[in-house]
């Protein structure tokens, strides 16, 4: 199930070529960081967590079953690490942190004001969901992952995932629909 490209890279790393790991980091860093950020909602924490995830993945590569899906495996590690960090910090996200997180999340991006504004709207809407729901929504709608894979990553049943996705979608829809009229234009143009 692991892609031939990933498999080749993994074989290279296991044969002693450590620098080949850079390719895996480049390929998955944005998604791993995004998932960590969705859970933690704090740029520095998410970055540290994402780094820890890659270090953990590197050290666990020899035990990785190549028949299984590498993407699912790394996302699962990301979710677990992020949730563990969130639990250990025990800091319920305050409104101040939310604002900090939002600002930090956009910090490195050179996008125009309009897309930044749209992104901020979606970010704020996502914050109405729980950490796990945010992860599920990202995996399902951004990465087009199957319910089965999401269930594996979040360690839930498929029925539970479906129910949570349905509720999250409704919540997001309500927020997006009520707050911003730009989506009506999106619907019309698509």
């Amino acid at each position: 199930m692991v892609t031939s490209e990933d498999q080749y890279i993994i074989e290279q790393i296991l044969s002693g070529n450590i620098s080949a790991f850079e390719n895996l980091v480049r390929k998955y860093q944005d998604m791993v960081f995004t998932l960590a950020f969705r859970v933690l909602n704090h740029h520095e924490d998410a970055e540290e967590t994402a780094q820890d995830v890659f270090v953990k993945v590197f050290h666990s590569l020899s035990g990785f079953q190549q028949k299984s899906n590498f993407k699912t495996w790394i996302y699962r590690i990301t979710c677990n690490e992020s949730i563990n960090r969130l639990r250990s910090k025990k800091n319920k996200i305050s409104m101040v942190n939310l604002e900090e997180g939002l600002t930090a999340g956009f910090y490195d991006q050179n996008q125009n004001l309009e897309s930044d504004e749209e992104k901020k709207i979606v970010q704020q809407a996502l914050l109405t969901l729980s950490e796990t729901e945010r992860v599920m929504i990202t995996l399902y709608y951004y990465d087009d992952m199957s319910i089965k894979d999401i269930a594996t990553i979040t360690e839930m049943t498929e029925t539970n995932v479906k129910t949570k996705l349905f509720r999250s979608r409704q919540k997001l829809y309500e927020v997006l629909k009520d707050q911003y009229s730009l989506f009506t234009s999106i619907i019309q143009t698509n």
Binding site: E22, V25, R26, Q29, D30, M31, F33, T34, F37, A46, E47, A50, Q51, G105, D108, Q109, S115, E118, K119, I121, V122, Q123, A125, I137, T138, Y141, Y142, R169, L172, Y173, L176, K177, F183, I186, I187, N190
Partner: peptide, 20 residues
């Protein structure tokens, strides 16, 4: 449809430049 489009439009977050 709205959720899918908005999530796709929002894209992924980017870690710092020194991440790798």
């Amino acid at each position: 449809k709205i959720v899918r489009i908005s999530i796709k439009k929002a894209g992924l977050e980017k870690p710092g430049k020194d991440f790798l």
